[in-house]
Structures are given as C-alpha cells and as structure tokens.
Computed example of a mutant assay.
Amino acid sequence: MHVFVTGASGYIGGAVATRLLRAGHTVTGLTRDVAKPARSTSSRTARNPSPR
C-alpha cells in the first residue's frame, strides 16, 4: 500500500513512517522544514528505515 504521511520530519510522523516502511509499505512524506532532511522519510528506504 502507498501511504502519505504528513509531518514526516516530526517525532510521531517519523515513527509512523518508519513502522510503515518496516511493514513493507511505500511511504511518501510531507515536511514543512526542508532543513531537516535527515529525519524525513525521503532519507529512509524500505530496506533501511533508519535515518541516514
């Protein structure tokens, strides 16, 4: 399933996105602050859901 997560750079949104990725879902994340890419879902992959 493809899931859209708002607030993906935040504490809860990041945790939700990580759990979804680990469960095998595709995640697209929306963040307000592009200066926080290390915590956003754009820096995570299904194989490595940890921030880079």
Results as ranks from 00 to 15, higher is better:
residue 1 M to T: 15
residue 1 M to S: 15
residue 1 M to H: 15
residue 2 H to W: 13
residue 2 H to Y: 13
residue 3 V to C: 10
residue 3 V to I: 15
residue 5 V to N: 00
residue 6 T to A: 05
residue 6 T to Y: 03
residue 6 T to S: 05
residue 8 A to G: 03
residue 8 A to V: 04
residue 9 S to N: 08
residue 10 G to D: 05
residue 12 I to G: 05
residue 12 I to S: 11
residue 13 G to W: 02
residue 14 G to K: 05
residue 15 A to G: 09
residue 16 V to E: 09
residue 17 A to H: 09
residue 19 R to C: 15
residue 19 R to P: 11
residue 20 L to Y: 12
residue 20 L to C: 14
residue 21 L to A: 03
residue 22 R to I: 06
residue 24 G to I: 02
residue 24 G to Q: 10
residue 24 G to T: 06
residue 25 H to V: 02
residue 25 H to Y: 06
residue 26 T to M: 04
residue 28 T to K: 10
residue 28 T to L: 08
residue 30 L to P: 06
residue 30 L to C: 10
residue 30 L to Y: 13
residue 32 R to Y: 04
residue 33 D to F: 00
residue 34 V to Q: 11
residue 34 V to F: 13
residue 35 A to G: 10
residue 36 K to G: 03
residue 36 K to A: 11
residue 37 P to F: 05
residue 38 A to P: 01
residue 40 S to N: 15
residue 40 S to R: 11
residue 41 T to H: 09
residue 41 T to S: 08
residue 42 S to R: 13
residue 42 S to D: 12
residue 42 S to M: 12
residue 42 S to F: 12
residue 43 S to M: 04
residue 43 S to W: 00
residue 43 S to C: 02
residue 43 S to F: 02
residue 44 R to V: 01
residue 45 T to N: 03
residue 45 T to W: 00
residue 47 R to I: 14
residue 48 N to A: 15
residue 49 P to I: 12
residue 50 S to N: 13
residue 50 S to V: 13
residue 51 P to R: 06
residue 51 P to K: 10
residue 52 R to I: 12
residue 52 R to S: 12
residue 52 R to E: 12
residue 52 R to W: 09
